[in-house]
Design a protein around this nucleic acid. Structure first.
Lengths: 143, 143
DNA sequence: AATAATTGTAACCATCACTATTACTATTGG
DNA sequence: CCAATAGTAATAGTGATGGTTACAATTATT
């Protein structure tokens, strides 16, 4: 998994939270976000669409439009951002093995359970931090 | 990440451990492993090559050849299997943001740290189980 | 009302990782 | 000698991903 979707979404949220703290009431256009990230504005808008669907950001079209956080950074856990943009977590597995082989019959369920525990641990780690906490770390690294 | 490499490697190891417990001294050909998994023998041999490089299995060419575990199942942690076949863990991130933007400068390092914690949690979960323990679960589900 | 800025999408393309498959050589046991 | 097997290269198909262009719809500003 080397998709940049989570990194992009996290960068978007950090920037929106930073702007909000700096001076509220302003919408950030996708061109601004894309420029900070080094990505394409359309790609950023696609990420924004999934974040909007998850209820994390709001957007407005037209001149002066753009995106802003729909929820306070203290109320956003990083796991919410992850799940908004990456539906599948962790490696894949084959649903069925060879029914003629005992291990082939039983292995898929056991393997799926292992991958499930892996995902659980991943998401738990992300749940331990809020966007506000991460923004604080970022702002400390600015000075 | 929906690669099947980890699931394939785990199935291979489970089957080799099961065969070893059943009756030792026999080499399992890639065709047998592939048949149990429902994968192609060449793909299985490629997985076996990485497991061999990691020191987890041994193979022998020629008639009567095949693969067997090089290490006792009680000494193999699932994280070793994961790292043998999947060099990259977790989602990717962009190494550099826009240097003209404060958040663009600082975000990549912060994001990389988040992903690093995610990976650490994932691998820690896999380190908690040995192949022997997983095999026991599989064998219990057989009855 | 006109204009400029902006989102929301669709369409398309290039790239990459992955799986499957064929084919061949080298090795090994019987 | 022969059959079975690993090792590996070459190739093809597939799906996810990111980039790009294009355009309709919406909104603030003048």
């Amino acid at each position: 998994m080397t998709s940049l979707k989570f990194a992009t979404a996290l960068h978007v949220c950090l920037l929106l939270a930073h702007l909000e703290a700096d001076g509220p009431g302003r919408a950030a256009p996708s061109s601004l976000l894309a420029s900070s990230i080094g990505a394409n504005p359309v790609v950023v808008r696609r990420i924004l669409a999934t974040l909007t669907a998850a209820g994390l950001v709001t957007t407005r079209t037209g001149a002066g439009g753009g995106a802003w956080l729909a929820v306070k950074p203290t109320k956003i856990r990083l796991a919410q951002i992850y799940q908004a943009v990456e539906e599948l977590v962790g490696p894949g597995f084959r649903p069925k093995g060879n029914p003629a082989c005992p291990v082939g019959r039983a292995a898929p369920a056991v393997i799926a359970a292992v991958i499930g525990e892996m995902n659980k641990a991943s998401l738990a780690a992300l749940s331990r931090q809020t966007l506000a906490e991460l923004l604080k770390k970022l702002e400390m690294s600015l000075s």
